[in-house]
């Protein structure tokens, strides 16, 4: 697949804290998931790729545009949409007016074409019925969809989504997954999340970050395969397990290095993710 976004050696420090440490990656069309614990550098990476904050070192290009000059940054911004972790709104604006405002900021100045585009993206996120309603009167899930519509307006080729499903109820999350899956058709989407199910259901590729570095870059199946033979069930919690919990069926599910003769079970993406992070901790303490 053709590389649409490529980053090499991205580093960024806030004082003594290293938020990004020599991050390199290549993204292709479709949805790529970005997993990692709090403080892993996910949001910082997304903000750098969205040109919201410049990196200290390293380079990246988005659909062939290099944002290291003011003109290059503008070109880059013309092809990207960004949904931040905590999108703020002008609460007195209606959903339509707000997305229309963002559309003007994205240089869609032909009024008729712009309004058609705003209607299109609001329909895409299922907000056509409430487009005239003030944002302050919308639910959290609807506001999140307004923010997604704002990111989608202008049909950007690269979409950066920072934890878009956080705080949503299960039904809203399912709806959002549908939207993200649709958004990933024909464009590059980078999705930061804590929800491994989101990655398992949506992403063709997953990147795991911790302590500002990329710890894994591959397919969800490859991440899951890291836990193959390392998940087992038992009637008691295994004290040697890296993690273990009692399931609804009353048996314990253990992740780590199984004892001989353990009853192995099918691993999940989450198991692979936990073991990847655990491997990193083991490296750090060695």
């Amino acid at each position: 697949m053709t590389t649409t976004v490529s980053a090499a050696g991205l580093s960024l420090r806030y004082g003594l804290t290293t938020a990004l440490d020599d991050v390199s990656l290549r993204l292709t069309e479709g949805v790529t998931g970005l997993l990692g614990p709090n403080g892993a550098g996910k949001t910082t990476l997304l903000r750098v790729l969205a040109t919201a904050v410049p990196a200290d070192e390293g380079t990246f290009t988005v659909l062939g545009h290099d944002p290291r000059t003011p003109a290059g940054r503008q070109e880059t911004r013309r092809v990207l949409g960004y949904l931040p972790q905590t999108p703020g709104f002008h609460p007195d604006f209606s959903a339509f007016d707000f997305v229309d405002y963002v559309a003007i900021l994205k240089e869609l100045t032909d009024r008729t074409a712009r309004h058609n585009e705003v209607r299109r993206v609001l329909a895409e996120v299922d907000l056509s019925d409430v487009r005239g309603k003030r944002i302050k009167k919308l639910s959290g899930g609807m506001r999140q969809r307004v923010a997604l519509a704002a990111a989608l307006v202008g049909d950007p080729g690269f979409l950066v989504l920072d934890e878009p499903t956080v705080g949503l109820d299960p039904e809203q999350r399912m709806r959002f997954r549908e939207l993200i899956a649709r958004a990933g058709e024909g464009r590059t989407v980078l999705l930061s999340t804590h929800q491994t199910e989101d990655v398992a259901m949506l992403c063709h590729r997953v990147v795991v970050m911790a302590a500002g570095r990329v710890r894994f870059d591959g397919t969800p199946a490859e991440l899951t395969a890291r836990a193959a033979g390392r998940v087992w069930s038992s009637s008691e919690r295994d004290p040697n397990a890296k993690a273990g919990w009692r399931t609804g069926l009353g048996v314990f599910r253990n992740v780590g290095d199984p004892p001989p003769g353990a009853e192995l079970v099918e691993p999940t993406l989450e198991d692979g993710y936990l073991l990847t992070l655990d491997g990193m901790h083991a490296e750090a303490t060695a």
Binding site: R77, P84, V102
Partner: peptide
């Protein structure tokens, strides 16, 4: 309040 959401638009 919409600063974050509009931080990546081409209008400077």
């Amino acid at each position: 309040p919409a600063r974050d959401l509009t931080s990546s638009v081409p209008t400077r």
